[in-house]
Structure formats: structure tokens, C-alpha cells
Nucleic acid binder design. Structure first.
Lengths: 235, 235
DNA sequence: GTCTATACGATGATAGAC
DNA sequence: GTCTATCATCGTATAGAC
């Protein structure tokens, strides 16, 4: 089995439904992931995790040093395959265009598509993207550590691709564009409940994910380009 | 300095430099705000708040019903004057253009300027914008309640203004544009630590706030317009 | 109505025996 | 490595004094 299949982890989790063959550390990770996805970080106590995993409470603090680092380990494990797909998509797009850089839209799509695809395919992400979005503003430098552990390499790769896709853009344009784009993406992923209040009765609050990709890419690319032409104007 | 002797000396010496004239409820709000700004919601215990305010622990649950509602009260009190300024700016911009709608840039600037101004003026928002950003993805429907309490009226006002500033935009364009724009703004406000890792050595991590406004507005307006022309293309 | 003293259940973390 | 036992601290609830 590749991942846990607990897609509907209700609050009352029965003990030790996970494979007993795995080591303690992995069983903690599996239980933690399914409970985090279902109920969030704070609402998930270490006691619930260890009960579900069928291990002792103190095992968490032995294998991981704290709840925070357990969260980190869960996120890194979940993010790695997604980031691999992001890079391979970017590689493909760049190969397709030969010596010319791919369009900005393609670069952005390479980053967004793996997650949107998973959502569309009904992969058991649960509220994982929500957690990802929330981590971004979590205290304690958690995101900073996660960034170093999982995002730093692919960030440089995408930053270079965006720079080449936007001739004439200054470093500040790239920086601000990425910053605001990440915010828009995180907010899209988090799908906050307040979103429904924005929508009015005209818009579907959870539209088809595959249709969302086009809108996301259009908005972000438009924002990037507006930044660049603003810089050009002010010269 | 020492007025009424509170029964025993307060344990940690951050204590009670707040005006003794104020009522208990206000002193709790003041203490909570300063501690929230300094350390965030979760890291701030009710005991620290009540100790700093020089009141009893249970007073929190008397005046507010829970820690969550205390957070809500603090945020609403802080947001109200900002939202007033946002509306008056929007009024002014709309009056200036007479019967014609103001530009999209003006509408966006009306929303962003009060906070950017405060940052530029050195108003000690502390990490308050960070808290604002984090609230957006907080569990428990907290943001939903805050939205109803403080944002619902101004959201409708700005939504209408944006709609009029974007002729030809469909309801879905407006919805997605606002959604992604709010995300970009929240992320800008949150200034996550991971930002520095993005910057490289070319970009100042905390640039002049008044310069930021132009970039923010440019990106968001460009994003909006790209969404609209995408919709027009696909017809 | 306001406010205080006190207690309850649950949490994350740790020490030390096995 | 893994356990039991225990710790300080958390948010919350209640009973009763002014």
C-alpha cells in the first residue's frame, strides 16, 4: 500500500486499523496524516494519534521530538511526490519549447497542475491543501523549516523559469510576483469558509477543479505581466 | 505607580502598566491585543492576559464567553476604524469620477491603502496583519464570524465597485478575482518568514510600504483583467 | 451585574525503569 | 526502543462574594 486510505476518518477512530507490519515511526506518520487531514493540526492530540497507531504516547516524542516536528515530517512526506511531479512537468514543458523558454502560463501550470489534478481525481488529499495553506502563516517558524526541507530546491527552479518567461522583468518584479502568486495559490488551496459569503448566489463555491486551473493561471500570469509593464513604465 | 494593591504581587513582571481607570472588559481587550500581536493567538494563554490586565482569570469567560470570542472581539475592535477609512476612500474616489466608475486600480487602492499607510506611518500593528491572515484559515468558523461581524458590509460595497470598474466581467470573474486577490493581500500582510528565502540577495525583504502599494495594485488589477479577457476569449 | 477563588478534564512534554 | 508515571499548563465551568 502506498498511502493510508482513511478518507473518512471520523472523530471516533478505532485503534490500530493500520498495518501492523510497519514500524512504529511509520505507523505514527500514517495515523497522524489521516487525523491531520480530517481534523487539522491543533484539534488532533498526540493521544489520539498514538491510540490510532496502536503505539505508546511517548513514542511520538522519541521518534519525533515534538508535535511540531511530527507535523513537519508528515507534510514533507506528502509533499515530496507532488514536487517531483511539478519538476517533471516543468522539464517536459521546457523540452517542448526547445531553446525558447516556455510561456509563463505553462510554468505556472506546471506548479499548480499536480495539486489540481489530485483534487480532480479525488485523491485522498482530504483537507491537506487546507493544511498546506494554513501552515504558511503558522507561528513558530514551521513553514520556514518546511520550506527549507521541501521547497527550497524547486523554488529556485521555478524562479529561474519564470524569469526566463518574462523578458524585461527586474528582480523585484519576479520577487513580488512570486510572493503574491504564492498567496493567491495558498488562499485558493485553503478554500476558507468565508469564501461562500463572497460568492453570492451566482458562483459555485467549489467548482470543477480542472476548470479552476485555467482561471488561476490566467489571474497569476496577468498579475505578473502587469508588474513588469508597471516597472517598464516607471523607467 | 502602585495604586490599589492587588491582593498579591503579580507573578511575572510584565504587569499592569495599563490605565487603572478602564473597566475590566477594556483592560482585558487591551492586554489581549498586545499579547496577541506579540505572540499570536495560540501562544497567548488566558492566564497571561488576565495577569497583565490585573483581573481575574474567570473575568474573560464572564465578559466574553470563550477565548475564541475574545479573539473575535479584539479583531473587530481593531478592524473597524480601518474599514471606515476604506469606505471613505472609496467614497472619495467615486465622487471624483462623477457618474463614471473609478478605475479598478483606485478601487483596489482604496482597500489596501489604510493598512499600507499604517505600516508606513510606523503604527505598531505588530504582527496584527499576520493574525488577520492566519484567521482566514483558522478552524472553527472563526473567520466566518469575523467576516459577518466586520467585513460583510464593506465586502458588498467593494464587490459592487469592482464589478462596475470591470465592464464585461461575469460573476465568476468577479468571484475568482476577489478570491485570489484576497489571498495575495493576506499573504502580503502576513509576510511569512519563508519570503526571505524567495528573495535571493536581489530584493529587499521589507521594502518601503508606500512603494509596495503600487506593486500590489498593479498585480491584482492585472490579474482581474486577465480573468475577464480569458472569459471573453472562451465565448 | 461584576468579579473572584477554585477546581476539573485534557493537553504536550519528560524522566527513568525495563 | 519502548514503556509507565508524572509534570506543568492549558481552556473552561461553577459557586459565591460584593
Amino acid at each position: 500500500m502506498t498511502e493510508t486510505n482513511v478518507s473518512s476518518a471520523i472523530s471516533t477512530a478505532t485503534a490500530a486499523a493500520l498495518e501492523p507490519a510497519k514500524e512504529t515511526k511509520d505507523r505514527i506518520l500514517d495515523a497522524a496524516e489521516s487525523l491531520f487531514v480530517a481534523n487539522g493540526f491543533q484539534a488532533t492530540s498526540l493521544r489520539r494519534i498514538t491510540t490510532m497507531a496502536g503505539v505508546n504516547l511517548a513514542a511520538v516524542n522519541y521518534h519525533f521530538q515534538s508535535k511540531e516536528q511530527l507535523i513537519l515530517a508528515v507534510m514533507v512526506r506528502k509533499l515530496e511526490p507532488i514536487n517531483r511531479r511539478r519538476l517533471s512537468l516543468l522539464d517536459r514543458f521546457e523540452a517542448e519549447t526547445g531553446p525558447h523558454p516556455p510561456s509563463l502560463e505553462k510554468v505556472l501550470a506546471a506548479f499548480l497542475q499536480p495539486i489540481v489534478d489530485d483534487q480532480a481525481a479525488g485523491v485522498d488529499l482530504g483537507s491537506f491543501p487546507v493544511l498546506m495553506g494554513r501552515l504558511y502563516t503558522e507561528p513558530g517558524g514551521l513553514m520556514q523549516k518546511l520550506f527549507s526541507a521541501a521547497f527550497a530546491p524547486i523554488a529556485k527552479r521555478f524562479k529561474d523559469a519564470i524569469t526566463r518567461a518574462l523578458p524585461g522583468a527586474g528582480p523585484l518584479d519576479i520577487f513580488w510576483g512570486m510572493h503574491l502568486t504564492i498567496g493567491a495559490m495558498a488562499h485558493y488551496l485553503a478554500r476558507p469558509p468565508a469564501l461562500a459569503l463572497l460568492a453570492g448566489r451566482d458562483a459555485a463555491p467549489v467548482p470543477n477543479p480542472s476548470q479552476s486551473l485555467g482561471r488561476l493561471v490566467a489571474y497569476m500570469a496577468g498579475g505578473f505581466r502587469a508588474l513588469v509593464s508597471r516597472s517598464a513604465d516607471s523607467l
